[in-house]
Design a protein around this nucleic acid. Sequence first.
DNA 1: TCGAATAATGTGCATATACACTTTAATCAT
DNA 2: ATGATTAAAGTGTATATGCACATTATTCGA
Lengths: 141, 141
Amino acid sequence: MRCAVLNLRKASRVMTRLYEDIMKPSGLLPTQFSLLVAVRARGPVGITRLAEALSMDRTTLTRNLRPLAREGLLTIERASGDRRARQVSLSDAGLARLEVALPLWREAQRRTAELLGEARLDRLLGDLRAVVERGGERIAE
Amino acid sequence: MRCAVLNLRKASRVMTRLYEDIMKPSGLLPTQFSLLVAVRARGPVGITRLAEALSMDRTTLTRNLRPLAREGLLTIERASGDRRARQVSLSDAGLARLEVALPLWREAQRRTAELLGEARLDRLLGDLRAVVERGGERIAE
DNA sequence: TCGAATAATGTGCATATACACTTTAATCAT
DNA sequence: ATGATTAAAGTGTATATGCACATTATTCGA
């Protein structure tokens, strides 16, 4: 069917399984890997800001952090200034885990490019970003 | 980041919220709507076959059927021939619900086309289908 | 300064997702 | 015919997702 949400969700399921398979030896699921990468790129960062960067609901992020914090891959600490806020940081173990996962992630990327072709993949990524940019503004309401 | 699974999942979240908002008055979530449409198109259909059509794990489908069966929108009955199999069918209430939801779905489609432009949306749908076709074959292994 | 509005986060609940394992029934090979 | 294999489906467990509501702390206006 020519339905945007159905086709996005279907493709999302397929791609998630592909990355999961390849990245399994790292012990990280694709979402968890993305989360660690996002935290590494932003240094200590608040939950709300991190959620916005991932176009993810804040409360979803809170729970997605849990298994990673449980494993000690990142830390969630009360901020020094604002006592409401919490800062998420990558731990040394988290960085080490990322280094295990990165080659596997690159292999999954390679496999994806092989499936679709570089040009089509680039085009798809651009269109997906357009969806996020143009459709994601409701979040700020 | 130039990551296929991250961008697909992000876009999927954004688009899901957009459709959810618009379709809310129907009482159907996007996944549930897609499921009813898929059942309507296939008449009485087995769980495994339906799951394949949706690129969805069979056990996920089993659980996704539950709230719809609970509301009486579809029925799940033992097949006459094979006593292992179950047949999923759309009920009259399901059909009625679909007719409530369809105009809302069309509005969500219209809004999506407005956000991306017709041409870009068509291109995106084609690329997503390519992901499903080329990446989804692992399921058959 | 103190009460109201705002901001950052967490919880309860429900759905979505899928792997590993189990159960039951059909089919197939000998 | 019967034991082995295959096929259809369900369950246990864990993560992913987000809305409604609650909590706590900051900020801001009179």
